[in-house]
Computed example of a mutant assay.
Amino acid sequence: MSTVATTDPVLTPRQATPISLRGRLQDALPKIVLAPSFVITLVFVYGFIVWTAYLSFTNSKTFPSYALTGPRAYQRLWRWTFESDPPSSWYTSITNMAIFGFLYVGICLALGLLLAILLDQKIRGEGLLRPIFLYPMALSFIVTGVAWKWFLDPGLGLEQTLHHFGWTSFHFDWIKNKDFVIYTVVIAGVWQASGFVMAMFLAGLRGIDGEIMKAAQIDGASPLQLYRRIVIPLLRPIFLSAFIVLAHMAIKSYDLVVALTSGG
């Protein structure tokens, strides 16, 4: 009996089909759309940052000068900031910015996370509370500063109102005290931004896989351990994003300070 030998077909690599002009345009369309904004940002943001850094090493004053003088301007700034007696206004500004930035960012992160955890418990009225917490972010720093200036004024706001209700021993004059006025700026800033941070954390909490939470609960994890060991580590990208946004807002808080304290 004869047998017929069979051979498996030889698989040859499929030849790459040429990409049509339409396909190339579709692939290039995102780059074409983003190219103008990328070039504008590169030139008018980072380009001018480099140009400003270059001018800081020249003898430029009102108008730019391109004669290099080295770090002479930074040496004068250092002596004026840290070696002058009494301390310079620049040193005072740096100190106040450090106090405000540290408290503002830290309290906003803590309060925003706490509010997000509370709203994540599927409480009643969540749809009403979310816009209430977010509403202050829709206001400008000027409006926030003026409103809190009236509210904290001892002769007009909270203190005067409580005196009318009979609590005559209550005193809250931080806005008139040069040693405590920086903390009133922190209060106003936290009131405005904490709701926005809450929204960021709430979105992060809603994005966590529920199966991970259920598995931890089955293993006997307490609510504190659940948030400390699972939830908060998973929210690290949200912490970073919130920190960047808050730090940016803290640096741009000039109008809040002027509106609340009339410049100090």
Rank of each mutant, 00 (worst) to 15 (best):
M249Q: 15
I244L: 14
G195L: 07
L128N: 08
G106T: 13
L224S: 12
S140P: 01
R228A: 14
I32Q: 00
E211D: 07
L111V: 11
G47I: 08
I251K: 09
I208G: 08
I40L: 08
L114M: 14
T17L: 14
G101R: 04
Q225N: 08
Q160N: 08
S65E: 12
F243V: 04
G207M: 00
A188K: 08
K214D: 12
V197C: 05
R76M: 11
N59V: 13
A147G: 05
I99Y: 15
P13T: 10
S262W: 03
A138P: 03
A5C: 09
M97V: 01
P13A: 11
V181N: 04
L77S: 14
Y91R: 14
P30K: 02
T3I: 11
A199W: 13
Y91T: 07
V10T: 12
I40A: 05
G70D: 02
L156S: 11
L156C: 06
M97G: 08
Y254A: 14
L55C: 08
D209N: 15
V43M: 04
V10D: 14
Q121F: 00
V4W: 00
N96L: 11
I49R: 07
I182K: 09
K122I: 00
S37Q: 10
A73V: 15
L152K: 07
T17C: 08
T81K: 04
W78Q: 03
S56K: 05
Q217N: 10
V43Y: 02
S140Q: 01
G189E: 06
L134S: 10
K176R: 15
A67Q: 12
T261W: 00
V181E: 04
D8Y: 12
Q225P: 03
S89W: 01
P154T: 02
M1H: 09
A193N: 11
I182E: 02
G204K: 11
M198S: 10
V185P: 07
L109C: 00
F133H: 07
V245A: 09
L156P: 09
V105Q: 07
F239P: 09
P136F: 15
K252Q: 11
G166F: 05
Y104H: 13
L234N: 15
V33S: 00
S194Y: 13
L234E: 14
R228Q: 14
A16C: 01
M198N: 10
I244Y: 05
L103S: 14
D27F: 10
H163M: 03
L202G: 02
I175F: 02
